[in-house]
């Protein structure tokens, strides 16, 4: 699908002493974000080619509700998540359209999307977008009526 640049009001976050997860979603370049309504429209459109979707939050969230067709990869901030994501994408063409999403927490506090984005960027992927979820997956995707499915 076509993923165009969007702007987002993302709160800047100052890392604190003892913070185990200094990486924040606020560090993802604004030009790489995609808004929920834009992604939902693209998924509904029969004409748009579909991106690979990875949920990089936590399994309990994914099992309750996820974007149809998306795959679960463990938390992007964890070594397990990084390894699983790397293994999943390593044989893909570097121009493959990929959308990462989490929705675990408010955007400025999400520890997962920035490390996952950075990993793909570092591997040479050139068409990676990150779904901008301002509050959490329930508020900004499920409650908006965008498509969801449940299950493993």
């Amino acid at each position: 699908m076509g993923v165009t640049s969007v702007s987002a009001q993302a709160t800047m976050r100052v890392p604190k002493d003892g913070d185990l997860h200094p990486a924040s979603a606020s560090d993802v370049p604004l030009g790489q974000l995609i808004q929920p309504e834009e992604l939902a429209a693209g998924l509904r459109s029969a004409k748009s080619p579909k991106p690979l979707l990875f949920q990089i939050g936590f399994r309990v969230l994914y099992v309750q509700a996820h974007i149809p067709g998306s795959e679960y990869v463990a938390a992007g901030s964890s070594p397990t998540g990084a390894q699983q994501l790397r293994e999943r994408v390593e044989k893909l063409p570097r121009d493959k359209a990929i959308v990462l999403y989490c929705g675990c927490c408010p955007w400025s506090h999400c520890p997962n999307v920035q490390p996952a984005y950075e990993l793909l960027h570092g591997m040479g992927f050139t068409n990676v977008k990150v779904l901008f979820i301002a509050h959490d997956f329930g508020t900004d995707w499920v409650n908006k009526g965008y498509p969801v499915e449940a299950g493993q």
Binding site: F58, L61, Q64, H135, F137, G138, T139
Partner: peptide, 8 residues
């Protein structure tokens, strides 16, 4: 059962 925990 607790209404869905779709964020933390």
């Amino acid at each position: 059962r607790y209404g869905g925990i779709l964020g933390l």
